[in-house]
Amino acid sequence: MTTVIENNQKNDRLEVGTPLLEVKDLHVEFHTRDGIAKAVNGVNYSVAAGETLAVLGESGSGKSVTAQTIMGILDMPPGKVTQGQILFRGQDMLTMGNEERRKIRGQKIAMIFQDALSALNPVLSVGYQLGEMFRVHQGASKKEAKEKAIELMDRVRIPAARQRVNDYPHQFSGGMRQRIMIAMALSLQPDLIIADEPTTALDVTVQAQVMDLLAELQAEYNMGLILITHDLGVVADVADKIAVMYAGRIVETAPVHELYANPAHPYTKGLLRSIPRLDQKGQELYAIKGLPPNLLKVPAGCAFNPRCDVATDLCRTEIPALHHVTDKDGKELTGRRSACHLWKETLHG
């Protein structure tokens, strides 16, 4: 059986490693009744073809807002992009016209949402919702679209796809629904997939299956993947590099294994310590004290300072830059950055 994706093989597919998306100094604000909430404050990251970037952070850290801004689905107002660029294949998407932007959505950049039950339309069959991609973007007929929907459902391993194509989202299990979301995002074989907490709403065994499927398909089609999550466990196996966000800023970036082995920011360190581990059975689980900051009044200096064990006076007054990180011999570690005044102590300490 030939799959939809092979049939659609694009000739402009990028080589692995070509820069695909670059977010440059992005600032996003929300104008609310209580004041201006600065949700994203100068975020920079990039993803190359075939690469997986995990964006890690608590709720309110700005990770989802950044993704929504890339996708162009941020509610504006109240949201507002005040500064920055989002370059997709070198073109700034923020200055594009609506129609040009729309054609990128779904075809070039696709998104997988957290809760597939609410993200799928409850009153339309999954076959219709999958087929819609082909009908709108490729002018496929109803019949062709349905056939392609069945192929897609087969591709993400939904059993008895042909019998189930006319079923509605509520008739599927949580894992199957998320597979349908993945199928929808993959349908036009985009260059980049943004997965916003794709497994948070699933139970643990299904989480692993869905992540494996996503990673497998990504490798097969050389797609870039931005994986947004607060779950460090999900990230470890699939991501190439990690960006940790806190209060609208990136506080640390690193290749995935280096970050796990040796974090360079106290916040990352805290996150890693709060993962339950088998060898600490019976001991109290560590938790980062305090709460994430209210975005309407972010603390002066480093936003993490009130919750940080090692904060100094400098941390309370001056916002740390995203420093390049070096090893003990002063050699720069590629891809590693930390927005901590005390990164040296944290890393080598």
Binding site: R102, R105, Q107, F113, S118, A119, P122, M133, V136
Partner: peptide, 21 residues
């Protein structure tokens, strides 16, 4: 609603987002 956001993210024209979804 989330499904309306999905419809936008799918790159559907506004007319279809409103009319269908």
């Amino acid at each position: 609603a989330d499904y309306v956001r999905t419809a936008v993210a799918k790159g559907l024209p506004r007319r279809k987002v409103i009319g269908t979804h």
